[in-house]
């Protein structure tokens, strides 16, 4: 049976697509799933860097499309996991170096040998976006709780609806203390505005920047708080019913600390 093909997209850039793809992929692989991550951001290759695999790239997705190499030759296995590999984007090519059919075919081929194929989508809704969604059967929309990110996410939701892809939402970079102070849209607000089913909530946390600096997935850092967050999302993706973390229910200390931080 072929694996699930999920595009991770947002419309707006810099909201956390690549971070989410890398860490969810790692979380799923740590749970034992076979995972292939596809970097669809042609010309702006990043997924390899976030996962610390940049030195091992030999071939890229465009070369697979052009038939210069086999898919398995281009896949880079992440040695920290049993079953995680990435298919890098081309760094020195244009977005039109690959088309929708080619992309869909590669994703389908990847799905033959994986339980999950996660596609890291470029920003925007043009050719790069169309390539990235071409082979997908499901979508995860990532947004931050900010007006411009949500407006762009809404645009993307419209496009995905046209293709009848089931959509779930990840609200990234939430700052609970700001929500509590009324200075940030809440997760409920975002879900209501976008009318999309919630998949996960990832708080804004310096841990991400720190682990990304080192090219380490969060789930491998035993001390990271966010480890649990990504693991929960991975379990939801596998179909388990996992309750959402209630970020409002902090203790008094947390609240005080949060309020200070938010101020």
């Amino acid at each position: 049976m072929s694996g699930r093909r999920i595009v991770i997209t947002s419309g707006k850039g810099g909201v956390g697509k690549t971070t989410t793809t890398a860490n969810l992929g790692a979380a799923l692989a740590k749970r034992g799933a076979r995972v292939i991550l596809v970097d669809a951001d042609i010309g702006l290759r990043n997924l390899d860097l976030v996962l610390g695999l940049e030195k091992r790239i030999v071939f890229d997705v465009v070369e697979v499309a052009e038939g210069r190499c086999q898919l398995r030759q281009a896949l880079i296995k992440d040695k920290r996991f049993e079953s995680l590999s990435i298919l890098p984007a081309a760094q020195t090519r244009d977005k039109d170096a690959i088309n929708e059919e080619q992309f869909a075919a590669i994703v389908a081929q990847a799905a033959e040998q994986a339980d999950f194929v996660l596609i890291d989508c470029p920003a925007g809704i043009e050719a790069g976006f169309r390539n990235a969604i071409a082979g997908a059967k499901e979508a995860i929309v990532v947004t931050t709780p900010e007006v411009s990110a949500i407006r762009d996410a809404d645009r993307v939701v419209g496009k995905l609806n046209e293709k009848q892809l089931p959509i779930r939402l990840i609200v990234n970079r939430l700052r609970p203390a700001m929500v509590k102070a009324g200075d940030m849209l809440s997760v409920d607000d975002v879900c209501e505005i976008l009318a999309v089913e919630l998949l996960g909530i990832v708080p804004d946390d310096e841990e991400i920047i720190d682990t990304t600096n080192r090219g380490e997935p969060i789930v491998l850092d035993e001390t990271a708080k966010l480890r649990v967050i990504y693991d929960k999302i991975a379990r939801r993706m596998e179909g388990e019913l996992v309750p959402f973390t209630n970020f409002d229910a902090q203790g008094l200390f947390g609240r005080l600390f949060g309020a200070l931080k938010a101020g």
Partner: peptide
């Protein structure tokens, strides 16, 4: 404290403004 100050000053929280504008 910030919440209290805002309530006191009667400014609507920016999140409700954001929601309204987005809608």
């Amino acid at each position: 404290m910030i919440e209290w100050l805002k309530k006191f000053l009667g400014t609507p929280p920016s999140s409700s403004t954001a929601k309204e504008r987005l809608r």
